[in-house]
């Protein structure tokens, strides 16, 4: 039982954050399924006390899936569907696209019955910031080498997103990048763009 609950909580492995503060129940618990009390009652009760994305979200999900299918089908038609004896480049993507459209519509049609989507919380901002920071750092690699953007990324992620103290994050970042440098550049001779 305990393991079920823990998994519902998003798993401990990467959750070692003694540093994580902000006891924001509503958001943080968005996925924490208290499965144990529901043990004898069947699944539906368990969904009640946690915010779950509802019908609209799943409607949108279904629509996105179906529209993806429509898009890929259009390209497939453009590539040519071919025939059985001469299958074209679009034959297979066409078949799969149609399946995708059907699935998307089914998801949309049954949107009200899904309870497995989570709402986007305000903490999702952290995710967006992390992704942007990561993408920017990686894009800088070819221009200034991987070392400085990497150190900056590590410090930013540890201290701004993770609330670690700078006197901890800075040395760790520098050491980590130095170790990567030795491993990948010297050890494995990976031709990663580098400054030094």
């Amino acid at each position: 039982m305990t393991d079920t609950a823990q998994d519902g909580n998003g798993g401990g492995a990467a959750e070692a954050s003694g540093a994580g503060t902000a006891p924001d129940q509503a958001t943080g618990h968005s996925t924490g399924q208290p499965t144990d009390p529901a043990a004898d009652h069947g699944p539906e009760e368990s969904a009640d006390d946690t915010p779950r994305a509802g019908r609209t979200t799943n409607l949108v999900c279904g629509a996105v899936v179906a529209l993806t299918g429509v898009g890929t089908l259009a390209v497939a038609l453009d590539l040519g569907l071919g025939s059985l004896s001469q299958p074209g480049a679009g034959t297979w993507p066409g078949i799969v696209s149609m399946i995708l459209i059907v699935i998307g519509l089914l998801i949309a049609a049954r949107a009200a019955t899904f309870t497995d989507a989570e709402p986007i919380t305000k903490d999702a901002v952290a995710v967006a910031v992390a992704v942007v920071a990561l993408a920017v750092a990686v894009q800088l690699f070819p221009y200034v080498g991987f070392e400085l953007p990497s150190v900056a990324l590590l410090v930013f992620w540890m201290s701004v997103l993770g609330q670690e103290k700078l006197r901890l994050s800075v040395p760790i970042s520098v050491i980590a990048v130095a170790v990567f440098y030795l491993t990948f550049v010297y050890g494995l001779a990976v031709p990663i763009p580098r400054l030094f």
Partner: peptide, 27 residues
């Protein structure tokens, strides 16, 4: 490319895996 011509500097001529693993002397 950029100002950093050094980013294209040829690699340290280490036989792959050699140095870090201490299997071959780095040449």
């Amino acid at each position: 490319m950029s100002w950093c011509s050094c980013s294209r500097r040829p690699l340290a001529a280490v036989v792959a895996g050699g140095l870090s693993l201490g299997l071959v002397a780095c040449g």
